[in-house]
Design a protein around this nucleic acid. Structure first.
Lengths: 198, 198, 198, 198
DNA sequence: AATGAATGAGAATTCATTCAT
DNA sequence: AATGAATGAATTCTCATTCAT
């Protein structure tokens, strides 16, 4: 039983490595099988087909991301401090998982089939914390309520995903964490409740 | 002479239609040729190969976008008014060119090969106006200078591209222009120079 | 295990039949696959590509030729008798293997890529016996040493290959063995050490 | 009129250059047209199709070869001296025309279609001088008559063509004329009438 | 006569998936 | 469960040849 899970994981790990370099179509099952040290056919014992394997990859990583975000937010008080932490961890996570980042940002997030997947909804939950923080801030009165929450979310995820995507496309040559404080600051300035005089 | 240009354009138009539904690999030359009403081989008189055709698509559209942006900004005074106009036009352009949007946002902008392309640099020039506006605002003292301009750019393009991408992935079912004023407002609030008391 | 070898052989046999009629470019993989009774793709399990298959053909046949030459020379004494036997067997081999002959003489021996091949060196070894016989004769003093051995080899292989090539181009309509004794005789006269009075 | 001939010649010259590097199939009409500085379609004003052009090449060169052989044999007395001259000129001709040599020896002489061509018969006439010399020698009694004249011809052309072919396949890296005297000598020894005591 | 744009047939090769062992 | 040989569909691109100008 545990053996089965181990093997499944090893296939996924091999798939991440391969898919991070090539897209869904270019990556070959043989290459993944070879990297996992198993026969081609064996993959089909664990996954329905190539797309199924492709779409299964984010589940584990998503869990890791969500759990770590929770852990890092633990004990932090103040909505804006939480936002600073989230921004930092988001960038840090992809800095330390660039292969997965490539896969998620440049392949999956843009794949129409994936968006209709169960896994996609699961993935959305992982940034649930952004919602929670924003809502918390709105209740406390420090985050603006004059702008639709969807717009606020687009703002936060927009800048973060844009930064990560461009960074990956530039072969992760510079330090993505360099400006994390400026990013936090500008987001906070955008989200902050307007004072009456404005 | 003009005939050659016409034919080239008709191939590009057919390619936009096909590539907006299928990615570079899935789309077939035959399908494009058929849609353009020409023989397969003819495409190779105008483009080196499928990738070349794929990467050539944005050139025209980019020109159109850039020219229109200039036109729409004409006569507008005030940096923030210009930003409002740019936000509106950006969303409007993709609202009226969803097929090209799909191609650009979900295929090209994420394609590693494309980023190394001449066309990509050309494309970057098309959002040059954002830089110009920001710099103008900084000179006037109304846009903050305490944050790296790259971060500001990530902010503006991040939210806009994120909105367009998600909208397209949701099959353009809702009106992307709905929140354009809120988007402008929140961006302006983020970009605005901080007053001394903050 | 043996199955793999059998299949490989059956592909080669089909390839000989097809390549003897058409050259490397004109012959199609489909035709070979069909003749071998397998799927197109299967050929690529055994050979890297069409050229690889093409160049692999002579290996087996070369072994057969070399072994048979050895066998036929067995027990024959006298350098000139050996030459007579070699001449006869050379012509006899291609008389009984005209398809392979066409392939070897009219395609491979004239193919620049093949000459750079490992197989080509292997093939050269198969006529090694000519060298051995000549050297043996030179040691015994019955074969001339006043002419470079390369020239002697060009003489022997030149006439034999020329005869076989022309015979095949004439659709093997006459008996190539008809003049084998005259050929041997003239070669022996050419190779024989000159007597002092000449 | 003379213009037409000039253009035809320039096409043939371009074709020789192209065909000497690539075989009939690999060489392209476009390349020839480009090298000749004309449009693709123009070639079809002068030649029925690619094969026709290919097969037309030897005519001129054959004339040149035949005329030069005659010239070089002029004034030479003695059958064996004529053979020596022929051997020398044959090797010399290809030494100075390696591109044409490649085309003739490695492509045309091995092409089944060419053998059935009018040009092929024309080409055979060009080595007619070998026949003449041999027959002259037989009449004079210095060349053996105990061996079929076809065999004698295979001997002479066999060694010469073999030498040229191998030399070309080895990229003409060594001097093909180096051993011409030895070649003449061994041929003469082979052809010479046997003295009674042998 | 010359052009060269358009044609469209044609073939090698890849690779996800199956299934007998 | 694992294997890996076999499958065969599917597609890009080339290029000789034509023909309207």
């Amino acid at each position: 039983m545990s053996k089965k899970i181990t093997r499944r994981k090893s296939i996924i790990q091999a798939a991440i490595e391969v898919f991070s370099e090539k897209d869904l179509q270019s990556a070959s099952i043989s290459e993944i099988a070879q990297k996992a040290g198993i026969a081609n056919g064996t993959i089909y014992q664990y996954f329905k087909n190539k797309e199924d394997l492709f779409f299964s990859i984010p589940i584990e990583k998503t869990n890791e991301f969500r759990d770590q975000v929770q852990l890092h937010l633990e004990g932090i008080t103040g909505v804006f401090n939480k936002i600073r932490k989230f921004v930092w961890y988001f960038l840090y996570f992809f800095k330390t998982n660039p292969e997965y980042g490539r896969l998620l940002m440049l392949e999956l997030r843009v794949n129409k089939g994936f968006v209709k997947t169960e896994t996609y909804n699961f993935l959305k939950q992982s940034v649930r914390s952004v919602w929670d923080i924003i809502e918390e801030g709105q209740k406390e009165g420090v985050i603006r309520t004059d702008v639709d929450i969807y717009v606020l979310r687009h703002l936060v995820l927009g800048i973060l995903e844009h930064m990560v995507s461009r960074w990956l496309l530039k072969d992760a040559k510079y330090d993505i964490l360099e400006h994390h404080q400026q990013v936090s600051q500008i987001l906070i300035d955008a989200l902050r409740s307007r004072t009456p005089d404005r």
